[in-house]
């Protein structure tokens, strides 16, 4: 048994024939070959697999690829494509505000949780009423993302910095 699926992944259409039971995270990693989306717990708890579905954070280990058919999925590779792969410093200037804030606030150590954290924060900031995000709202908003390295402090600092830049932070 199989399905023909087409998903718009980082702005490009990816079509493939897959089993019905294919999870979105496996479609992203194994079919499209994008390895930035990680699998941590595989039980909807850790958030390492977080991607954006039509702009909103979701855990791709708990979606069927079929549920994303015909929709827009953004992974860490597609958050700021114009910033390139880091080899061109001028292009790196065009990083997404959350990516830049992680860089400037040292928001990662091993980096395993980072793609999911960045996308979860991007969604949180995008959804917030302007001028409302404070430290507490950010900590609550990251309930679904675990980090085993940083102790969260610099992640929260990065999220606040990005929120300030986009106007989502509480004034």
């Amino acid at each position: 048994m199989s399905l023909e699926l087409e998903i718009t992944l980082n702005g490009k259409k990816v079509a493939a024939e897959v089993e019905e039971r294919t999870l979105l995270v496996h479609f992203i990693r194994d079919v499209a070959g994008l390895k930035g989306t990680n699998i941590g717990c595989d039980t909807t708890s850790c958030g390492a697999c977080t991607v954006l579905l039509d702009g909103r954070s979701v855990k791709s280990c708990t979606l069927l690829a079929a549920q994303a058919e015909g929709r827009q999925v953004t992974t860490i590779e597609g958050l700021s494509p114009e910033a390139g792969d880091g080899s061109d410093p001028a292009a790196s200037e065009r990083m997404h505000p959350v990516q830049r804030a992680f860089h400037e606030n040292h928001g990662l150590q091993c980096g395993y949780c980072t793609p999911g954290m960045v996308l979860a924060i991007a969604s949180l900031i995008d959804e917030a009423e302007p001028g409302t995000l404070d430290e507490e709202a950010i900590r609550l908003g990251l309930e679904g993302n675990l980090c085993r390295c940083t102790g969260y402090h610099n992640i929260v600092a990065a999220a606040l910095a990005a929120a300030r830049q986009t106007g989502a932070a509480r004034r």
């Binding site: 958030g47 977080t50 909103r56 954070s57 979701v58 855990k59 708990t62 969604s123 949180l124 679904g144």
Partner: peptide
Amino acid sequence: IGDPQVRHR
């Protein structure tokens, strides 16, 4: 309920 990702779905 749960976390933001869970509430989105």
